[in-house]
Structure formats: structure tokens, C-alpha cells
Design a protein around this nucleic acid. Structure first.
Length: 787
DNA sequence: ATGCCTCGAGTTCA
DNA sequence: CTCGAGGCAT
């Protein structure tokens, strides 16, 4: 960089450099408007350092080279605040704000006073003292009376001016404000720390507070801190503006960063409007805030209003509902899910988080508890993050009672007392009770009746719980033998058990309408589809999508319930794990008899059909052989075997020497031999062969004509809400035209349909350059392509 | 082996 | 909605 006034005098040159560096800092950190490239900035800085090294007498305290203090101190000196640092009264409701404004109106005898409105930054309050325009001391708030001298650390914050701009500042000036860590910087810092094994900060607020309290200011300098000014402290020897808002403008002129979200407005309504607007913008702000602050703008009026105790009458903080709260762990219970998964749940002392009272929070799994070291009795931080579901963020270790013990997973199911087991490499512990565990059975029934499964309206989890607990229902099939009397009797026993007065008895007559409705919807549910039925069975790893695929490929329950796992693997997206799980389910006698009973009691599958034409193409002998997972017998080797011996039924009989003659490597042949010697493998082969042959017959008899659908092979994602139909309906129509409807957008997506208020999926699609249809386009397409 | 991309499963509260 | 993990392409 060339200087227009290149001076040789080191004193003058140093002064010029300082001025230019400070100007660059101001533009970059306060105005957010970088004027000179980083490299040039560095050059100026190095030149100044060189001059100061050569002429130590020039290294003045307010030099930008001194932003990082040289000597770490043992501890911070105390600083007494000349003017006490305030704390504000907090308000959480509109009503409290209206009361606040009313009180002011009465005391000042005016209506709709003017307020200065500001965000309430979630950082650390500090006070900065300037003498003759030079930053001389900075302190934390402390208890309001006395804080800690963190001057050296504050110097490292680039948005804090070391020298004031302009010339109309008072000789002695104290400015108060908030040190915070911008979210993006916080994320970036943590990412870097994670990669390099550094200290990861818990959140921006703690990051800011912790950084300022570093004894070694070079650590503070490495932390991305920033500052906003929002209030005056003690001021000597000068006339200041008459209003708070004008004062903030002065702060700006003097080089302090003042938030652009600061506004003025009149009356309670103006305050509340601001609260809502900032609340909506909150998540998209580059820094954390925990509310807004209203201050009477007229400084004389502020003085007239004065204080009550420690808080001013002229200002109030209107807080957002807290997103994080601390509470105590009362107990850690184990919940047993439909698949037997044992999920630990924290029972909490009830606490308000983001507007709702939270009493439970999931702890996900045993590993998570171990990671967090959560113990019964601990005080923990609970959060309702972007979504709704509360979670335990961390333990406040200082508040741990002395007698706590590390939490341990139970050894046995709390319900059926079967052993809890964990499969190799898995995170979840499961109850081994399977069919005999009442908890698992209950969950299975709830799943069976749920909307996306058999859709039995009115049969919710509470009712099912009672039905199971009182012995009316053991297996899902029992639902279909319940009569009106059973429901009435069940209700009576439940009321008796709970000691509640039966509301079903009115004027001596037992109310039965609810039971009649239930019987009706149970009856209604009997007419269903194969895919719903398969989903309803609750087979592990079989969700809606897999159920749909099974239904589409094989077409009939009679077939599916007898398929060995190697054949199940023929379906795309069904691999060894899922196939074995399905096989295992149908291998259990109890499950087969439950299915028989359901069918006997009238469950009927309206949409059963012949095997899919696609299945036929997958029934080659080589695919079949490869699907058996015989060690070393890869797809390629399987094909080789088939070309030599043709009929897979000969797998059991071809002697080893012939295998080798046919060109199979010796180890492959040996693996095959030892595989078929295991009786369970031999059985599997026999069973698979039989069904494979059946499938080939079935596939051969299906019609050859496979009509190509307009959206065949296209992957579609639906997002936002449609007006002419629900997303599910639209999805069904698109599927009927051959499309695959996926849940999330990726490179493989062909196009998305975006309805009203589409969110992140639309953004992602646009980012990936994926075609976007609006509802009109969809309707047009559907009209042009009747199913 | 490694890294997407999906699917499945579990979860809270009004 | 988010996490874990299965399936599959590379």
C-alpha cells in the first residue's frame, strides 16, 4: 500500500498508521463495511509493530498493537462502578407491559410516552471508561456495585474503539453495553476447536463470558467477540443530548457499534409491536437475544421516574419465553417400545421451557446418559430446540448433590422382567421378552390401530392401555372379538380401578354411544389394503415404505407370510437385515396364528394381486444363488456356477471336484461345501428353492404387457401445503403414475412439488437446481394424465 | 471400505 | 423432527 503522505518521522508515521488501522477496524467491525483488504491491514499492522519495536517510547497504551496485552495477571482487580450498573425488571406478558406503561403515564401525567426500543442481547454486560477520548478501563457488571477490571481483554475486541471519533465527546465518559459472540463466529470457532481438539464452547453467551474472564488476554483475542453499546454510565463535564435515542446516535458518531434494531415508538402498543417483530426475526439474527428492552426516551423523564429498589421505573425487559431452563432430575425411567427398545426417560421437576411445562425429556439411550453423565438428583439444562421435543443438554456439575451415583442401565425389563440385551455394535438395549412382554404387546396393539396402519378411529393409546391392562386384549386379533358388553365392562372396571365416577352412567342409564362408535370403526377397519396390513403387523424394520414394496412385488399375503429371507432380498431396498427380520417374524408360530385369526375374524385385503412383472426379471438362477449369502459366492461366482450346472437345486449335490472343474476357485468351492453341510443352511436352501419355483410359475403366468407409466422411475418430493388435496393424496396420485415419492430432497430427486409455505426442502431444491412444480402445474399434469 | 440417501423408530404436549 | 442404521453405489 502506498501512502499519500509518506513520512519518515517515526512519531508521525506511527500516529498515521494507528489512525488508519483504527479507521479500518471501525469500518470493518462497527460499520460492517470493509474498505481495505486483509493483506493491506496486516501490512499496516506489521509496519506499526516494527516502528514501536524500534522506538519503544512510541508504544502508547491505546495503540492498536496493544489490543493483545502482554502480561497475564494472577487475578482481576476490582472496579467500583461510579454509577451502579442497573438490572432491569423482567416482564413476560403483554399485560405486564401494559401495566408498566400505565404506571409511567400516571407518574408523568402524559399519554403514550415515547420509548427507545432495543433488543436484549444475550451476552455479558460491561462498562467502558474513556478519558479525553481514550479507552482507559473496562469492567464487568459484577454485582452492579463492583465488577472486575477486564481492560486488557476488552482491548482485544475490535469493535470497541480505543479512541473515540469526532471531538464532541465529554472529557470523562462511561459507555455501557454488551459483549457477545456472533452466532456464526461461535459456530466457526467450535468447528475449528473440534477439528483441532480445542475447547468447545457450550453456547455463545457462555463463550463470551468465559472469554472475557481469561487471565491470558491472548486467549481472549482468539475468541470472536463483539460489542454493542446501549447506555451511558457516569459522564463528566459535558452536555449530553436530551433523549436516549439521540444519545445512542451520538455513541454511533463516536465510533461505538449500536444495534440497527434500535427504534423508537409510542405507548404500550408500539412496544408490543416491536416485541413481536423482533420475536419473529429472532432466529435469523446473527446474535442471540433473550428479549427486548423498553426505555423511556426522554432523559429528564427518566430522572423524574427514578428507581424502585435496584431497578429503574423507566425501563423494563420484555423477555422471550426461555428456550433453556435448569431443573432437577427426579428419576430416570425405562420405557419399552414396540420393538422392545429400552429408552431411558428423565422425569423432571416441572419447569417452563419456551412456553410449556416440561416434565419428561428423552435421554435417547444409555450411551447418551453416559456421555452426559446424568444422574438422579442432578440439576440439568433442558432445552426445546428448534423443534418441540425437550432434551437434556447438559449437567450443571457444581450443583450435583454429594451422594449421587452414576446411572446404570437396568438388567431386566421393568415390565416383564426378561433380560435386557444389546446386540453387538448396536446402541439400543432391547427387552428379550418379545411376544410375552406386556409392554411390547401393548405398543404393538397401539401401532396396529394407528392411523397409518389399520386406522381404527377412536381407539387411542389410553383406551388400548386399559384394554391390555385389564386383560381384554392380548394379541391384536383380540380387538376383533370385542363386543359392546366388553367395552362397557372394561370401562366399568377401569373406573373402579381408578376410583373415578363413571361418567358413562347418566340418569341411571349406561351411555354406550362411544362403544357403539368404536365397534363401528373396528368393523370399518377390516376392509384394508395389503400394505397397511403388513405395516400394521409391526415387523421390525418394516415401515410404510417397505410394506408398500412388499405388497407391490409379491401381491399376496399368503405368499409373503411364507417367504424365506433370501427371496425377500429380491426387492430393492430390502437387504439381509430387513429380510431376516421379516422371515423371523413369520417364523414365529404366535404371529402366524394371530394372522390366521385376523383373517378368520373378517380382515380382508382388497388389493391383493398377482406378483409384479418386475419380480420376474429378478428370478434368475444366479440372482437366487447369490441371495443365499453363501460365503465367497459373489454375484459373479454365482453366475459362473449357474452357467456350469444350471439348476440351483443341484447346489446340494454337485461334488467338490466338479465345482473346481467348472472353474470355481478352490476356496469358493470349499466354502460352498462346508456351507451346505450345516443342516439349517440345507433347510433354508430347500425351503427357498421350493418358493423360488413357485414364484417362477406365478411370474410366468402374469400378463406380459407392462405399460409404461408417465412418471416411471421419477423421484418426487412433496413440500408445503396444497389446497386442492392433501400431500398424501397428491403422493398417491403421483405414485399411481409411476413416481417414487421420497421424503427428502437430494441429487436424485427429479422434481419437487411445492405448495404454500414450503420451507427448507424448497430451498434445498433450488440450491440443487431441481425442477419445482407449483400446485397449478401438478393439477394440470394430473388432469392430462388420468390414472 | 466409504459416503450418500432413505427409511424406521421414538418422542412431547396441547 | 432427529438420530441411527440399513442399503447401495462408488
Amino acid at each position: 500500500m502506498t501512502s499519500p503522505t509518506k513520512t519518515t518521522n517515526p512519531t508521525a508515521r506511527a500516529a498515521e498508521l494507528r489512525q488508519r488501522i483504527e479507521e479500518a477496524n471501525y469500518r470493518y467491525h462497527v460499520l460492517d463495511d470493509a474498505q481495505i483488504p486483509d493483506a493491506d491491514y496486516d501490512k499496516l499492522m506489521r509496519e506499526l509493530e516494527a516502528i514501536e519495536a524500534a522506538h519503544p517510547e512510541l508504544a502508547v497504551a491505546d495503540s492498536p498493537t496493544r489490543r493483545v496485552g502482554a502480561t497475564p495477571s494472577r487475578e482481576f482487580a476490582e472496579v467500583r462502578h461510579e454509577l451502579r450498573m442497573l438490572s432491569l425488571a423482567n416482564a413476560f406478558s403483554d399485560e405486564e407491559i401494559e401495566d408498566f406503561v400505565h404506571r409511567i403515564e400516571e407518574r408523568l401525567d402524559i399519554t403514550d410516552p415515547l420509548f427507545s426500543l432495543e433488543p436484549k442481547f444475550d451476552g455479558l454486560a460491561i462498562s467502558l471508561r474513556y478519558e479525553n477520548g481514550v479507552f482507559v478501563q473496562g469492567a464487568t457488571r459484577g454485582d452492579g456495585e463492583t465488577g472486575e477490571d477486564v481492560t486488557v481483554n476488552l482491548r482485544t475486541i475490535k469493535s470497541i474503539p480505543l479512541r473515540l471519533r469526532g471531538d464532541d465527546w465529554p472529557a470523562g465518559l462511561e459507555v455501557r453495553g454488551e459483549v457477545y459472540m456472533p452466532r456464526a463466529e461461535f459456530e466457526r470457532y467450535n468447528e475449528h476447536a473440534r477439528e483441532h481438539g480445542g475447547k468447545v464452547l457450550a453456547n455463545p453467551r457462555n463463550g463470551a463470558a468465559g472469554s472475557l474472564r481469561q487471565l491470558d488476554s491472548s486467549i481472549t483475542a482468539s475468541r470472536p467477540l463483539a460489542f454493542f453499546a446501549y447506555a451511558p454510565g457516569a459522564v463528566e463535564d459535558s452536555a449530553l443530548p436530551k433523549t436516549h435515542s439521540a444519545l445512542l446516535q451520538k455513541f454511533r458518531d463516536w465510533g461505538f457499534p449500536v444495534s440497527h434494531l434500535v427504534e423508537t415508538a409510542r405507548g404500550a402498543q408500539g412496544c408490543l409491536d416491536y416485541y413481536r417483530r423482533i420475536g419473529e426475526a429472532r432466529d435469523s439474527l446473527p446474535f442471540d437475544i433473550d428479549g427486548v428492552v423498553y426505555k423511556v426516551d426522554d432523559l429528564d423523564a427518566q430522572r423524574d421516574l427514578g428507581f424502585v429498589g435496584r431497578t429503574p421505573r423507566w425501563a423494563i425487559a420484555h423477555k422471550f419465553p426461555a428456550q433453556e431452563q435448569s431443573t432437577r432430575i427426579l428419576a430416570i425411567d425405562i420405557n419399552i417400545g414396540r420393538t422392545g427398545a429400552a429408552t431411558p426417560i428423565a422425569r423432571l421437576e416441572p419447569v417452563q421451557v419456551a412456553g410449556v411445562v416440561v416434565t419428561n425429556a428423552t435421554l435417547h439411550n444409555a450411551d447418551q446418559i453416559e456421555r452426559l453423565d446424568v444422574r438422579v438428583g442432578d440439576t440439568v439444562i433442558v432445552r426445546r430446540a428448534g423443534d418441540v421435543i425437550p432434551e437434556v443438554v447438559r449437567v450443571i456439575e457444581d450443583q450435583r448433590p454429594a451422594d449421587t451415583v452414576a446411572w446404570q442401565m437396568l438388567k431386566h425389563c421393568p415390565i416383564c422382567h426378561s433380560e435386557l440385551v444389546r446386540e453387538e455394535g448396536q446402541v439400543v438395549w432391547r427387552c428379550s421378552g418379545e411376544l410375552i412382554c406386556p409392554a411390547q404387546r401393548k405398543e404393538a396393539v397401539i401401532h396396529f390401530a394407528s392411523r397409518r396402519a389399520m386406522d381404527i378411529e377412536g381407539l387411542g393409546s389410553r383406551l388400548i392401555e386399559d384394554l391390555c391392562d385389564l386383560g381384554f386384549v392380548v394379541s391384536v386379533a383380540d380387538l376383533y372379538k370385542l363386543g359392546l358388553d366388553d367395552f362397557i365392562e372394561m370401562k366399568r372396571r377401569a373406573d373402579e380401578r381408578d376410583g373415578t365416577t363413571p361418567e358413562t352412567v347418566k340418569a341411571g342409564k349406561v351411555a354406550t354411544k362411544w362403544a357403539e362408535n368404536l365397534i363401528e370403526s373396528i368393523e370399518h377397519s377390516k376392509q384394508t389394503t395389503l400394505e397397511r396390513f403388513l405395516f400394521a403387523l409391526g415387523i421390525e424394520h418394516v415401515g410404510e415404505s417397505t410394506a408398500k414394496a412388499l405388497s407391490a412385488w409379491f401381491g399376496r399375503l399368503e405368499l409373503i407370510r411364507h417367504l424365506p429371507w433370501p427371496l425377500l432380498k429380491l426387492v430393492p431396498d430390502i437387504g439381509g437385515e430387513v429380510a431376516r427380520s421379516i422371515d423371523h417374524f413369520f417364523a414365529q408360530e404366535g404371529n402366524q396364528s394371530a394372522i390366521d385369526e385376523l383373517l378368520m375374524r373378517g380382515v380382508s385385503l382388497k388389493d391383493e394381486h398377482d406378483v409384479s412383472p418386475k419380480l420376474r426379471q429378478s428370478l434368475g438362477a444366479d440372482r437366487f444363488l447369490a441371495s443365499l449369502e453363501i460365503p465367497k459366492l459373489t454375484e459373479k461366482r454365482a453366475a459362473q456356477w449357474v452357467s456350469a450346472f444350471d439348476d440351483p437345486s443341484r447346489v446340494t449335490s454337485v461334488p467338490e471336484h466338479q465345482l473346481v472343474t467348472a472353474g470355481l476357485p478352490a476356496d469358493t468351492a470349499a466354502a460352498l461345501i462346508s456351507w451346505r453341510e450345516e443342516t439349517h443352511n440345507a433347510d433354508l436352501l430347500k425351503r427357498s428353492l421350493r418358493i423360488w419355483n413357485t414364484l417362477r410359475e406365478l411370474a410366468g403366468s402374469t400378463s406380459e404387457t407392462e405399460q409404461l407409466l408417465p412418471l416411471d422411475g421419477k423421484t418426487v418430493v412433496l413440500t408445503g401445503s396444497l389446497s386442492a388435496m392433501t400431500r398424501d393424496e397428491a403422493g398417491a396420485k403421483l405414485e399411481a403414475l409411476g413416481a417414487k415419492v421420497a421424503g427428502s430432497v437430494s441429487k436424485k430427486t427429479d422434481f419437487i412439488v411445492a405448495g404454500e409455505a414450503a420451507g427448507s426442502k424448497l430451498e434445498k431444491a433450488q440450491a440443487l437446481g431441481i425442477e419445482v412444480w407449483d400446485e397449478a402445474r401438478l393439477l394440470e399434469f394430473l388432469a392430462g394424465n388420468p390414472a
